[in-house]
Lab assay of single mutants.
Amino acid sequence: NITNLCPFDEVFNATRFASVYAWNRKRISNCVADYSVLYNLAPFFTFKCYGVSPTKLNDLCFTNVYADSFVIRGDEVRQIAPGQTGNIADYNYKLPDDFTGCVIAWNSNKLDSKVSGNYNYLYRLFRKSNLKPFERDISTEIYQAGNKPCNGVAGFNCYFPLRSYSFRPTYGVGHQPYRVVVLSFELLHAPATVCGPKKST
Rank of each mutant, 00 (worst) to 15 (best):
L5D: 10
P7Y: 08
D9K: 12
V11I: 15
V11C: 05
N13A: 09
F17Y: 10
A22T: 08
W23V: 02
N24V: 09
I28V: 09
C31E: 06
A33L: 14
D34E: 08
D34G: 10
V37G: 12
N40R: 14
A42I: 13
A42Y: 13
F47K: 10
K48L: 08
Y50E: 01
G51L: 05
G51H: 10
G51N: 11
V52Q: 06
V52N: 06
P54L: 15
K56I: 10
K56Q: 14
K56G: 12
L57I: 10
N58C: 07
D59F: 10
C61M: 07
C61Q: 08
N64H: 15
Y66F: 12
D68C: 03
S69Q: 06
I72V: 15
I72M: 03
R73L: 00
R73D: 01
E76D: 07
E76W: 03
V77G: 03
R78S: 12
Q79S: 05
Q79M: 06
A81K: 08
T85V: 11
I88M: 04
D90Y: 08
Y93M: 02
P96T: 06
T100H: 12
A105N: 08
N109H: 06
L111N: 08
D112H: 02
D112I: 05
D112W: 04
V115G: 08
S116V: 08
S116F: 07
N118A: 06
Y119K: 12
Y119R: 10
N120C: 07
L125F: 13
F126E: 00
R127Q: 03
R127H: 05
N130L: 12
L131W: 02
R136S: 06
S139D: 09
Y143M: 06
A145N: 06
G146E: 01
P149I: 07
P149M: 09
C150M: 01
G152V: 05
G155K: 08
G155Q: 10
G155N: 06
G155V: 03
G155Y: 04
F156M: 07
F156S: 06
N157S: 03
P161I: 04
L162Y: 04
L162E: 00
R163T: 15
Y165T: 00
R168S: 01
R168Y: 02
T170G: 07
Y171A: 01
R179C: 00
V181K: 01
V181Q: 02
S184F: 09
F185I: 09
E186G: 10
H189V: 11
A190M: 13
A192D: 13
T193K: 12
V194S: 11
C195T: 08
G196V: 11
P197L: 15
K199R: 14
S200K: 14
T201D: 13
